[in-house]
């Protein structure tokens, strides 16, 4: 069902396994660091205009139930 209308690049498809592994380690260690820091009260809230990567879900839940 994929309409491959541009070449995604074979190397790019293969490399994602390695990228994901690196990202996993990075995120995990960041999480650990965050816990350690917050245990010692070293975390501070940053002020910026970016939201989190996650999208608000309220609407979707109801929509999903309809299907």
């Amino acid at each position: 069902m994929n309409f491959l209308y541009f070449d995604p690049g074979l190397g790019a498809m293969i490399v994602q396994a390695v990228v994901a592994a690196a990202a996993g380690i990075l995120l995990f260690s960041k999480g650990v660091m965050y816990k350690v820091k917050s245990f010692f009260g070293l975390t501070k809230e940053k002020e910026d205009t970016y939201d989190s990567i996650d999208v608000e879900e309220q609407d979707t839940d109801t929509d999903d139930k309809k299907n």
Partner: peptide
């Protein structure tokens, strides 16, 4: 590096490893 390495795979023979949803989310 990977892109240059696989740039000559004209017949699309190389197998693409699967990537779990969780892994993709990590990326």
């Amino acid at each position: 590096k990977m892109e240059s390495k696989h740039s000559e795979d004209y017949k699309a023979e190389t197998k693409i490893a699967t990537l779990s949803k969780k892994s993709q989310e990590n990326i």
